[in-house]
Design a protein around this nucleic acid. Structure first.
Lengths: 334, 334
DNA sequence: TTTTGTTAAGAAAGCGTTTTCTTAATTCAG
DNA sequence: CTGAATTAAGAAAACGCTTTCTTAACAAAA
């Protein structure tokens, strides 16, 4: 059997509450007893039982993160950041994959409810009503990452990329660099808020600069290499005048686009500049990709999670700061 | 306040143990009461408190996975697989990053000890004595993934890639394909058991086929793109007769090697064949990489974890089955 | 002195379950 | 029928902590 607080109390010849006080640094206990307790704790290698403690304190020191797909490099990176922050706050991170199945997500959330986690970060898209209802059941702080609820007021604090402004900045940047014919390949904008906002940012930047956008310059495919490939192919086949630059809704799309361009002997960035989004492939892709990187995601998420203790009430929509990274998949256009 | 088992008992007009029996499907309870209980549970949206349950059952339904780096794609993929298996067994996966710092790993393991997890998978390299000592403290099944302890008898059940045989097979395969001058670029073999075994497999295959291996054909760098780049560079610069094929200790190394070759205008696989390891970059890398893929990792790990309940005693070293995948970074040599 | 206030530490209650122990009710063999 | 065996369900204990309540000891103020 594991050693319990009573064993320590007996060994140190003090009462159980005294041991508890020493361990938690709460209450007052004389130097003499404190030392005796600490000695016993070390001697017997005592570890407080988290379940017993949790039962009474109503905390678990666990932060849950539910994500669609842990193998997505962007997700994995954010998890890494969250984990690092949790560590600092003496919390432990519990992650669950929901495989983009809201049904599975609800199943998982039920499990987490039983566990009385101290905080929940839900990194998901396709938020539907049953899912939101389940999220409402949590009494701990809940944060939506990746996708907000469009409807208006924030029911949950939401933290996402600043897709709209970033897409505008990227497009502006390309225009500054002399590009005039700029196309866009994004993901499905019906479901993905990010997709919608990126497209909007691109469109607004073009419009504000008085630039024409033929419908054939806009493609909405999948957020994947295949999607990018397909989108670029369609643009290539349906336009006599090719764009000199393409804004992509994700790095994966950019990779696919570049791969297609290579297949028809067009060179990037010599013939066409390609801009990505997410900074997900920087270290492995053959071309250093110009892209947008969101910063301090883990910190911002955790900060929201922990800050809320005081300011429970205020739910807001927060954006990660971002950097527009100009690398070698784009160049000036003359 | 959350609704408790007592609330359900009161609402259903039964005793607390009866509710417990219904929920756990244990013991005997009449159809009538069972229905009353179920109705109350649903009506009041009751969720049993995991901490209270865990306190008494000494189980937590949590499987802990401690890994060096969650952003490593190979790791992320295995986590995905483990999570899927845990789900099937009605367990929840708790993951912690230890950032390749054994000190941090020990800190995390202490936290997990407090939590009385039902199983532990430690995916790490550089296992040193303090770390092993900490692992011994667990009373639940502990599995070492990724690296075993060389010493001999298995203190912990260990599951790893079958690096030795796979490297032999890869080398054999290249020899069958007509290659005679085959080089090897691996990671640091002092620390990484996998590195050591892959090198050994390569060497044995060469020897058994009566093929010469000049020392300048063997490089041990980092398990990274830079490492592969550097290793290939050295081989290129130090050999008048270049190899016709290179066995790499990881896909990252292979990517680096290919990148170097491209930089000196050598074509893969036309001029040189390159074989990777891990199947980590298949979808994004420019060349479909011939590589080794380990299979069913999640299943095998979980199977070991859960099987052990009965056969606690037997610790063994188990290998994932693997496939040698011939793709387009290698070709026959005439 | 006596009273009041303060502090250190123990006693006891309680957190929400499961499990063991009892009891009452029912069935069945003799 | 009676007594033993079986069954369904409640009472009570236990899990390992934290927290509240209480007491004893002592110091400071009247």
């Amino acid at each position: 059997m594991a050693v319990t607080i009573a064993d320590i109390a007996a060994d140190a010849k003090v009462s159980v509450p005294t041991v508890s006080r020493v361990i938690n640094g709460a209450g007052t206990v004389s130097e003499e007893l404190r030392e005796r307790v600490i000695r016993s704790v070390e001697k017997m290698n005592y570890k407080p039982n988290a379940a017993a403690r949790s039962l009474i304190t109503k905390r678990s020191d666990v932060i849950a993160v539910v994500e669609a797909d842990i193998t997505n490099p962007v997700t994995a990176r954010i998890l890494w950041e969250i984990d690092a922050c949790c560590m600092k706050h003496n919390k432990i991170m519990l992650t669950c994959n929901y495989d983009s199945s809201n049904e599975k997500a609800i199943f998982l959330l039920d499990k987490l409810l039983e566990r009385h986690v101290d905080g929940l970060i839900f990194m998901g898209v396709h938020l539907d009503e049953p899912l939101l209802a389940k999220l409402r059941e949590f009494s701990c702080p809940v944060i939506l990452a990746q996708q907000g609820v469009e409807s208006g007021e924030c029911e949950f604090t939401t933290v996402t990329d600043d897709s709209y402004h970033a897409a505008r900045d990227v497009t502006d940047f390309l225009i500054q660099e002399g590009h005039r014919r700029i196309a866009y390949i994004g993901g499905d904008a019906n479901d993905y808020t990010n997709g919608k906002l990126r497209l909007q940012g691109y469109l607004n930047a073009m419009e504000e600069n008085g630039l024409e956008v033929p419908a054939s310059y806009i493609r909405q495919e999948q957020f994947s290499i295949e999607g990018g490939h397909q989108g670029m192919k369609e643009i290539y086949e349906n336009n006599l005048k090719l764009p000199s630059a393409v804004v992509c809704g994700s790095d994966m799309i950019a990779v696919g686009a570049i791969r297609f361009l290579k297949s028809v002997d067009l060179s990037v960035p010599k013939d066409i500049s390609v801009f990505g989004f997410d900074d997900a492939v920087s270290d492995i892709f053959e071309i250093p990709l110009s892209t947008v990187r969101s910063c301090k995601r883990g910190e911002i998420l955790c900060e929201q999670l922990f800050k809320k203790q005081e300011e429970q009430g205020k739910k807001e929509w927060i954006y990660y700061p971002y950097q527009v990274l100009r690398r070698n998949s784009t160049r000036r256009h003359q």
